[in-house]
């Protein structure tokens, strides 16, 4: 009962913060728009070439945009001291972290996934490819936030933490990148994306099971 109260309190606070500070989700969205819209200028307007690179650019752009929200996990709370509340809670820290990851994933994955089909127009991608890309972005963003939770927990209060976090997190997102982009490529060539999607879901579940526990342990060490 009190565990549910605690998890709800964490979730509700994050959502309230996202509703109040619109820049927290609008900035990643703007970044996503800028990254995906400047690529066609560099590679030219030939639609066959655009279609080939489009899937990769959109997927990587969404991942990089989601990276921008990682300081929301612990850095901000460490600065104003409110991380103490999480650390001294009698409830399991891993569950509280999971609640925060869920709120941040929701607030990011939805706008990014909704924007993906629109931005896919820059690359002349067929609508069914744009649809599957949106779906894989929905799976990839929570995976990235989960992995990011470990890195930001380790590097909380470290100088230059943002760059180091990216260095630690992005290599670990390669599996979800391969499977996600692979699913969209399959659809582009008219095949079934089921295998790639299943593997992407599996990687997400793996992160879901492991990352909150590891992040909790890392947070205890780095704030000691």
């Amino acid at each position: 009962m009190s565990l549910r109260i605690a998890a709800q309190a964490v979730f509700r606070r994050e959502i309230t913060l996202f509703a109040r500070r619109k820049s927290d989700w609008a900035n990643p969205l703007m970044f996503f728009l800028i990254v995906t819209s400047i690529f066609p200028f560099a590679v030219g307007s030939e639609s066959e070439r655009l279609r080939l690179i489009g899937i990769g650019v959109l997927f990587v752009g969404a991942l990089l945009a989601a990276m921008l929200a990682l300081p929301r996990l612990f850095d901000e709370d460490a600065k104003d001291g409110s991380l103490e509340h999480l650390l001294t809670s009698p409830e399991p820290l891993a569950v509280l972290i999971l609640a925060r990851v869920a709120a941040i994933s929701l607030a990011l994955a939805l706008p990014l996934a909704l924007a993906t089909p629109a931005f896919a127009l820059f690359y002349a991608l067929p609508s069914e490819v744009a649809g599957i890309l949106a779906l894989t972005v929905v799976l990839a963003v929570p995976t990235l936030i989960l992995i990011g939770a470990i890195a930001s927990a380790l590097l909380v209060a470290a100088r230059g933490g943002a760059i180091l976090t990216a260095v630690l997190v992005l290599p670990l997102t390669i599996p979800t990148l391969i499977f996600g982009a692979g699913a969209a490529l399959k659809v582009l060539s008219g095949e079934s994306p089921a295998a790639e999607l299943a593997l992407q879901v599996a990687y997400f579940l793996f992160a879901l099971a492991l990352c909150p526990l590891a992040a909790a342990a890392a947070l205890r060490i780095s704030t000691d």
């Binding site: 009190s2 565990l3 109260i5 605690a6 709800q8 309190a9 964490v10 509700r12 606070r13 409110s82 509340h85 999480l86 001294t88 809670s89 009698p90 409830e91 509280l96």
Partner: peptide, 10 residues
């Protein structure tokens, strides 16, 4: 509300 919620009190 957050402080006491995290401690398990509503």
């Amino acid at each position: 509300v957050f402080d006491s919620g995290v401690a398990g009190n509503s």
